[in-house]
C-alpha cells in the first residue's frame, strides 16, 4: 500500500477517534449539566460571614488512635447545658458564621433495641465531613449518656487531614469495618459502623449494605439493613437520630468561619486546641459545634418517652429547633 494511502488512513483514524470523543463528551456534558442543575436546586442554604485568611495545612497523624485522657473526655461528657442553650440561641438568631443545617429530615419509626430508641451512624475514618462532624455528634450524644472512651483521629491525608474523634480503636492501616463504641446511656443506643482504610491515602467509603454483609452482631446487621432500606444513602456521614434520617453532616465547621478556598483551619489545630476551644466556649468554632450538637439533640428528644427527665430536652433552644424541624412529639410517626 502506498505511503500516501497509509498516512491518509492514519489521519482518518485519528480524525474518527476525535470525532467519537467529541460526540461522547458533548452527550455526557449535556446530560451532566441537567443533573447538576437539578442537584444545585436542592442545595442546602449556606451561611455567610467574614472569612479570615487560612494557613496551609500541615499534614500529621500525631497520636492517631490515642484514647482521650480523663480530662479530655470530660470536655465532651461534662459540657454545661448552658453552652447548648446559648449556642442554640445564636443559631436561631443567625449570629453564627459557620454553615449549620436546620432542615426537615425524612422521618421513620424509631429503631428500638432493648426497649430504647437508637442513634445509628454510618461513616468512614477517611471522610472529611465525618471527621469535622463527629465533634458535634459526640457533644449531642453526651446529653443522653456518656463515653467511657473516645480516640484521637484524623481524616485521610488525601482528604484534608482533619482532626477528629474516632468512636473506636479503628484500624487506620488497612481496609475493614469497625463496629461499636464506648458509649453508655439509659435512654438511647448508639450503633456505629465505620469504614476503615489506610489513613495516609484517599477518601474511601462504603454502603450500609456492605456493612450489613460484614456485621457479625445481629443488632448491627439489622441496623445497617434498616439504613439501607431507606434508599437514601448519598455518602457519609449517614445517620439516624431518634426518628430523623440525616444524609450528610448537619454542619460544615472547619474553623471560626466558612473557609475560603481549600485550606481548612481545623487541619492545623491539635486535638488539645480543639478541646480547649470547646471547653472555653468563646469563639465561633465552639459555638458552632454546640449548635450543630443542638440540631442532633433536638431530633432525639421527641423520640424519648421520658424526655422531660433529660435536661437538654427542656432547653428553650431545643424546643424551638424541634418546632422548626416539625419534630414535636405529637408529629412523630410511631
Amino acid at each position: 500500500m502506498p505511503k500516501t494511502t497509509r498516512n491518509n488512513d492514519r489521519k482518518f483514524h485519528i480524525s474518527m477517534a476525535l470525532n467519537i470523543i467529541q460526540a461522547v463528551t458533548i452527550a455526557a456534558l449535556a446530560f451532566a449539566l441537567l443533573v447538576v442543575i437539578s442537584s444545585s436546586s436542592q442545595q442546602k442554604p449556606s451561611a455567610s460571614g467574614n472569612v479570615p485568611a487560612s494557613n496551609a495545612s500541615v499534614e500529621t497523624l500525631s497520636n492517631i488512635g490515642q484514647p482521650l485522657n480523663s480530662s479530655e473526655l470530660s470536655v465532651i461528657n461534662n459540657a454545661p447545658d448552658s453552652y447548648f442553650e446559648e449556642a442554640g440561641q445564636m443559631l436561631l438568631n443567625q449570629s453564627l458564621t459557620n454553615y449549620i443545617s436546620v432542615g426537615k429530615n425524612p422521618q421513620y419509626a424509631p429503631f428500638i433495641v432493648n426497649g430504647k430508641p437508637s442513634v445509628i451512624y454510618v461513616g468512614a475514618i477517611s471522610c472529611v465531613y465525618c471527621g469535622e462532624n463527629r465533634w458535634a455528634m459526640a457533644l449531642a450524644l453526651s446529653r443522653f449518656g456518656s463515653f467511657t472512651q473516645l480516640f484521637k483521629g484524623y481524616s485521610s491525608l488525601g482528604d484534608h487531614d482533619v482532626r477528629t474523634l474516632y468512636w473506636n480503636a479503628d484500624n487506620y492501616n488497612a481496609i475493614g469495618a469497625s463496629f461499636g463504641n464506648f458509649y453508655q446511656s439509659k435512654y438511647i443506643n448508639f450503633i456505629s459502623a465505620e469504614y476503615d482504610s489506610p489513613i495516609d491515602l484517599s477518601l474511601q467509603i462504603q454502603t450500609p449494605a456492605w456493612f450489613a454483609s460484614q456485621a457479625t452482631n445481629v443488632t448491627y446487621k439489622d441496623a445497617m439493613l434498616f439504613m439501607n432500606s431507606t434508599g437514601k444513602f448519598g455518602g457519609t456521614p449517614f445517620t439516624f437520630w431518634g426518628t430523623s434520617l440525616v444524609g450528610g453532616a448537619d454542619a460544615s465547621i472547619f474553623g471560626n468561619s466558612i473557609p475560603s478556598g481549600n485550606s481548612l483551619p481545623i487541619s492545623n489545630w491539635t486535638h488539645a486546641q480543639i478541646l480547649s476551644q470547646l471547653s472555653s466556649f468563646n469563639d465561633q468554632f465552639a459555638w458552632s459545634e454546640y449548635a450543630a450538637a443542638d440540631v442532633y439533640a433536638a431530633q432525639v428528644c421527641p423520640a424519648l418517652q421520658d424526655s422531660n427527665t433529660i435536661p437538654v430536652c427542656g432547653l428553650p433552644a431545643i424546643k424551638t429547633l424541634e418546632g422548626l424541624m416539625n419534630l414535636t412529639a405529637a408529629n412523630q410517626s410511631a
Binding site: 472529611v128 482528604d159 477518601l203 455518602g235 453532616a249
Partner: peptide, 19 residues
C-alpha cells in the same frame, strides 16, 4: 466528589445502584 457526592448519587434515579 467527597464523602457526599450529590451529583453522582443523583444517578441512582436512573437505576445505577449505590454500590
Amino acid at each position: 466528589c467527597g464523602c457526599s457526592a450529590p451529583i453522582l448519587f443523583s444517578l441512582v434515579s436512573i437505576g445505577i445502584g449505590t454500590t
